[in-house]
Nucleic acid binder design. Structure first.
Lengths: 187, 187
DNA sequence: GACGATACGGAACATGTGTTCCACTTGCCA
DNA sequence: TGGCAAGTGGAACACATGTTCCGTATCGTC
C-alpha cells in the first residue's frame, strides 16, 4: 500500500467518526470526504459502501466499549472496586456518552438486536459478553436483582441512550432518571 | 366542499395512519396515496406538506392518548380505581402501543421535546398535562416516589417506547423490563 | 342534460444522496 | 530521473422522494 493511501485511510476513518458522531447516521458521504479533505472516490476506495464504513466505526467503538467493560470487570473480580459500582458506573458512562455522541445509542441498539438474533449462548458482540459479566458479578455481590437478565438490561440501557439522545438530557436530568432505573435494578 | 373531496380526505387520513404506523416516518407519500387509492396530488390538496400530514395524525393520536389518560385520572379521582394502578396501567399501555405502532415512540418523544421547549408552567400538549395529573395522583396515593417529576417520567416512558420499537420486544420481555422501571418508580 | 367550478391523477420537476468511472496526479522503484 | 502502477478528485449517473402543475374527469346546479 502506498504511503498516501495509508495516510488517507486514517484521515477518512477519523473524519467519519467525527462527522457521524456529530450528525448521526444520515450524514452524507460527501460531508465525510470534505472533512477528511479527500474526494468521495477515495472514501469508496477504502470502504466499498457506506454500510462498510459505518460497520468499521461501530466495530472500533464496540471494541473500546468492550475494553472498558472488561477492565471494570477485572477490577471487580480483583476486589479493587465493588461489583455493584462497576456495573452502575459502566451503565452511567454509556448513557453519558450517548448524550453527546449520538451514534452510541444506535450502536448499542444494533448490538442488542444482534444479541437477540444470536440469542441464548454464543452472544455475538464482545461488548455484550462484557456487559453480561459485569451484570453477573453485580448480581453475585447482591447489588442487582437476580431476575434481571441481559435482555432487560440492554433494553433499559439502549432505552436510556435513545431517550437521552432524542430529548437532549442535561446532566441533572440524566442523573435523576438513572437513579430511578438503578433503584429498580437493585436487589 | 365536494362530496368526493370529503370522502378522499378521510381515506387519506386513514391510509396515512395505516402506512405511517406500519413503515414509520420515512414512508413515502406515494405509498400513502396508493394505499388510499388516490394520486399524490390529492394528498397534497388536503395537506400542503408531508409535515402537515404527519402533524395531523400526531394531533389525532395525542388527542386519543390524552382522552385515555384523562379518563383514567377521573376514575382515580373518583376512587373507582387506585391512583397507582392508573398511572402504571397507562405507562404500560403506551409502551405496548409503541411496540406495534412504531410511530408512537417518535410522537411521545416529540411531545417530550415540546414539553421541554415550553418547560415550566403552560405545558404544550394535553397529553403531558394528563400524564402529569396521573403522576401527581399516584404520588399523593403513595404509589410513586415524590422525587420523580414529569421530565424523568417522560424520559423513562419514551426510552421504553424507543427501545421496544427498535429491539422488537415481545410481551414477556416488555413485562419484565417494565417491572424493573416500575419498581424504581415506586415510593 | 348542459355547464362551470372543483377536484383528481400522475407525469414532471427539484433535490439530496449513494455509487461509479476515468482523466489526471503522485509515489515508488530501477 | 523516467516510467508506470496505484491512487485521487470530483463530475456524472442512478435512484428515491418531496412537491408542483395541468389536462382531464367529476360533482353540483339549473
Amino acid at each position: 500500500m502506498r504511503a498516501d493511501a495509508a495516510r488517507n485511510r486514517d484521515r477518512v476513518l477519523e473524519a467519519a467518526e467525527f462527522v457521524l458522531t456529530r450528525d448521526g447516521l444520515d450524514a452524507p458521504i460527501r460531508d465525510i470526504a470534505r472533512q477528511a479533505g479527500v474526494g468521495v472516490g477515495t472514501v469508496y476506495r477504502q470502504y466499498p459502501t457506506k454500510e462498510a464504513l459505518y460497520q468499521a466505526i461501530m466495530a472500533d467503538r464496540m471494541e473500546r466499549l468492550a475494553a472498558h467493560a472488561s477492565s471494570l470487570a477485572a477490577q471487580a473480580e480483583a476486589g479493587t472496586i465493588d461489583a455493584g459500582s462497576a456495573f452502575f458506573t459502566f451503565f452511567d458512562s454509556i448513557v453519558t456518552g450517548a448524550t453527546t455522541k449520538t451514534i452510541f445509542a444506535d450502536a448499542l441498539t444494533d448490538a442488542g438486536i444482534d444479541a437477540k438474533a444470536a440469542s441464548g449462548e454464543a452472544g455475538g458482540h464482545d461488548v455484550l459478553i462484557a456487559i453480561e459479566t459485569l451484570l453477573v458479578q453485580a448480581q453475585r455481590a447482591g447489588a442487582v436483582r437476580t431476575d434481571a437478565g441481559l435482555p432487560e438490561v440492554l433494553g433499559l440501557l439502549s432505552g436510556a441512550c435513545l431517550a437521552a439522545k432524542q430529548q437532549h438530557w442535561d446532566a441533572a436530568l440524566r442523573e435523576r432518571t438513572l437513579a430511578i432505573i438503578f433503584d429498580g435494578l437493585r436487589a
